[in-house]
Design a protein around this nucleic acid. Structure first.
Lengths: 343, 343
DNA sequence: TTGTAAGCGTTATCAA
DNA sequence: TTGATAACGCTTACAA
């Protein structure tokens, strides 16, 4: 069933069919209705390949997800909620969201190249940015409208949105200091992901403001998984001069840490204060309750949708692009896991 | 940059370019190398729309994900690992995996129709099947190669794969019975999802085999979330004649249940025995350790990949299609949460 | 208001 | 081994 089949059945030209289906002017109300009815009856929609080819646009926005080498489950709960917000904004603009899953065995840069060169999407959102991320330079080069969800060390102009890792770090450290903690451990990412770096350095700066030097023995890098958190717990417990508090860059770590402490009979908040990251996953259901941060992932998805649409419309209108740099805020929520140090 | 541009630069016809790039016979080794080099140098890949249009196939396999109305985070950790296995098999066959995320405000059937009518994919995997699922009938009608990941009550021939909910139910009940439990609660899905129904009925049958009638007061339907599990815990604790064990259809429930019990000072395995479902999410990090089931999600993804490829190749070769029905096994792993009842 | 026809970037057929 | 050309299904400029 294609446009010619429909035209033949209605004894109308294909041009009119197309105009009717695309809500173009110059079709009588009666004809338009006939076309719409026929399309529905025969289950006809314009073939996407034909349409994309002719229009020079696919109507699709890609979101590229890279499987974390650490196999964290965190990123996943996280992304799906973002997709929800993103999808609703895109749909309102007649765009489709397609998620491109970069296999663990694939090179992310090659994957992006393939998507771009083949013209599979009109816009792209990349996530899990590394500190040095060649995808960003490539996308700038190719002039594809894109958003980096996550910062990197590139200096070249592009649109990005990222979580407020600095704000989280600062609030965490300030709270722990105010509670009386002086020996504070930092658990951050073990790999090249940019946010682990941002978080660590912001913690270091906040500690310095309180006159505390962050020494290497208090910096812990583990895979961002429950297993990593479990291992972190073991390492903390084994220390001769144990810190009184730990601040974590992701809640998957927190889950494992809680279990390791539970195994050792150590109580979060009492024997060791803990500040987690955001509510996903499962941060709300830890006991003792976790001091952590909260953000609206749906709203974040909606923001990304608005941004990519703005980029695409500016491009289409030939307007100059203003690259937004957005730091997404997180609100702290006190819990029982952060208390004054014992004794 | 298109095929004509490349042809012009090399002073070769577009036909030869296409043949070289598609590894077709009838191109001299030297010419082929020149073409490959030029494509790389200029960052050229064939335009996907043009190629799809001409070939009548997009080279893409869709996987449709529906956001759970309950906002469970379970499905997500779950799916991403499946994608990993699926993607690797598809890539080996030159196919791309694209994930179509059906927004919470969209109708799943309309969403499928759109994907199919527009010819966006060569094959489709649908998940989260309802007991009565019109998507399946539609896809059969349209003759698109597809796999239902999840059963439904349709009688029409189609390929499906599903988890062994019956096996899980039976093993759970048998274990609890063997431990001495007679009053056993079942926590299943509150919505139309087929697996909740399968699980419940299989539990009922297993109990019946031991001479126990499953009464309605021991059937609990909650949203498949941590909050649902928390609420479940409250309801269980409030019962006058409290069951000695509970069996759960999904581990998001288990997390919330553990916390509710913890709040009440009730110890899993000691005061109330618990059997969870699969290891995602976080089942491995509960304390006391959870008796649950294990399955390889990567292998499941690979299986789905092989199946969809078989369907597509059978279609292409004009061969008769044999619709596979696969029940995916899960192995039980004993933990501390299932013990003989107290006293 | 409607019809005709060109052209989007490919692949495949046929001729050279 | 290579080149010319038709055709895939659509949108749109132009003609009627």
């Amino acid at each position: 069933m294609n446009i010619h089949d429909i035209a033949r059945r209605l004894n109308i030209s294909i041009g009119t069919i197309s105009r009717a289906l695309n809500d173009r002017a110059g079709v009588s109300a009666k004809t338009r209705q006939r076309v719409l009815d026929a399309a529905k009856r025969y289950g006809y929609s314009p073939n996407q390949s034909g349409r994309s080819l002719r229009r020079g646009a696919t109507g699709m926005i890609g979101f590229m997800v890279i499987p974390n080498r650490d196999r964290t489950t965190k990123g996943e709960a996280f992304f799906m909620t973002i997709f929800d917000g993103l999808q609703s904004v895109l749909a309102a603009h007649g765009l489709d969201l397609v998620i491109h899953y970069c296999g663990a065995d694939q090179d992310p840069e090659t994957h992006v190249q393939r998507i771009v060169e083949r013209r599979m999407v009109d816009g792209l959102i990349i996530s899990q940015t590394n500190r040095s991320d060649p995808r960003i330079d490539y996308l700038i080069e190719k002039k594809l409208p894109f958003i980096a969800f996550g910062r990197s060390d590139t200096r070249r102009a592009h649109t990005w949105t990222d979580l407020d890792f600095e704000g989280v770090a600062e609030q965490s450290i300030d709270l722990l200091y105010r509670l009386g903690h002086r020996r504070i451990a930092i658990a951050t990412a073990a790999n090249e992901l940019n946010f682990g770096y941002l978080y660590l350095e912001a913690c270091r700066a906040s500690l310095a403001r309180h006159g505390i030097v962050l020494t290497d023995d208090l910096i812990f890098r583990e895979p961002l998984t429950e297993a990593g958190g479990y291992s972190l717990g073991g390492r903390l417990l084994a220390l001769r001069d144990r810190p009184t508090a730990v601040s974590l860059v992701q809640n998957t770590l927190t889950l494992g840490l809680y279990q390791r402490l539970s195994d050792a009979g150590v109580v979060p908040g009492h024997d060791l204060s803990i500040i987690g990251f955001d509510q996903s996953p499962n941060g709300d259901f830890l006991r003792p309750s976790l001091t952590q941060f909260r953000l609206s992932l749906t709203e974040l998805g909606e923001w990304l949708g608005c941004q990519i649409i703005a980029l695409i419309e500016a491009r289409r209108a030939g307007r100059q692009i203003r690259h937004a740099h957005k730091i997404w805020p997180l609100q702290i929520e006190p819990g029982e896991s952060a208390q004054p140090p014992a004794r």
